[in-house]
Write a protein that binds this DNA or RNA. Sequence first.
DNA 1: GCTAGTTTCTATACATGTACAAAAACTTAG
DNA 2: CTAAGTTTTTGTACATGTATAGAAACTAGC
Lengths: 222, 222
Amino acid sequence: MPQPSAPRKSPGRPPRISREEVIGTARRIVTEEGVDRLTMRRLAAEIGSTPMALYHHVRNKEELLVLLLDDYAARALRRPEPAADPRERVVVAAAAIHEALAACPWIVEVLTADDLMSASALWFVEQIVDGLVECGLPPEQAVHGYRAIWYYTAGEIVVRATAARRRADDDRTTYREQVFGNLDPAEVPRLAQVADRWTPLTGEDTYLDGLRALVTGLLAAH
Amino acid sequence: MPQPSAPRKSPGRPPRISREEVIGTARRIVTEEGVDRLTMRRLAAEIGSTPMALYHHVRNKEELLVLLLDDYAARALRRPEPAADPRERVVVAAAAIHEALAACPWIVEVLTADDLMSASALWFVEQIVDGLVECGLPPEQAVHGYRAIWYYTAGEIVVRATAARRRADDDRTTYREQVFGNLDPAEVPRLAQVADRWTPLTGEDTYLDGLRALVTGLLAAH
DNA sequence: GCTAGTTTCTATACATGTACAAAAACTTAG
DNA sequence: CTAAGTTTTTGTACATGTATAGAAACTAGC
């Protein structure tokens, strides 16, 4: 793997393409035609190279997508006005991450990253951890709190995006609809009670409510 | 797609394999050799058929995996003793789902299901919704609460599983380690402060703590 | 200039999911 | 029995990610 910025004049054949070019072209394809059209062959053709040459600049397609996500985060994340209330800073920072990622459906496959650890996201993580500490959590608890917020946020985006995708290419009856159509009120009374409202209810965007609840609960322990 | 239980004597060529046989054989391969070894060709060979014949019994590989997850849930989910405290019933039901799913790393790709809506999981969903209602939430809020819990739970499992996978086939330095190695204490003081403890901290299993916090917060609004 | 070493690029090959078309094996109507 | 219709199975084909081997293009030491 080449050093991102190697001291010039290294031995070996000089590169004809760069990681930046790969990422930049990939970004163009994805924004113009969607992530489905991004294939290694297509990307190579667009750059004027061969598919395998790309593998000298990115480890594999997954890493390419992670890099694309970082690239996107660096552009799309706008730092919000830090609120006075530290607790509100936590909510606002998490919501900003969520908003940027939710607007970008193609990253879902990558979103399962351990953390959102692009350099440009660090500021937001700092806001969250710092806010929790300011609210009285010991640093370790604050890190755990951040993780919980990240699980919730990533889960929300992934689950919703997958649901949307399944709905899109599923003309036939969904398994869920089958199961939900025949609820036994004796076995599952509450679900039977809300069965007909289930789809609209789960369609509502309640991310912020859940986030606030989570933050409330994280802080309540102290 | 064939009816699960069609009224016998339908016209057309009689099937030589069944959806049950497909799922059962797939389950055997996955449990014995891991999900990576489950390919449509391998599965067909094992059954004594051809790859494309499988597609008359499952829509595609993704659906096969969803069915496998349902199958797994039906076997692995054990209903816990319902606690007296409704709030504790919520926690216990969610924890039971989490425990079963976390023990089963291969489902991650499928886990992004909209809900965990296998028939066998319904009881647990009922426990959660009912517990929240008993604690005073209106039914709509209870459904939203359940969704928040599901986001958190699915997110935790997916994120952790992906992190584990990445660690496994990544000898080289992780991108995260690179970013985390050079934290600027002036930019992100809190992160710099915990940087050396980050990996062990995020390795700890704090699912239950986060879950309890979330439930606390969901109920605190009322 | 020549050789050795290093890095990048190219060509070929394979495993995989699955689309498509046609064949096979039935039931039913006449 | 034959013809038509229906469902399942088979065979072939293609797009995709990527492993592997070797060629190409450079630098450094002689």
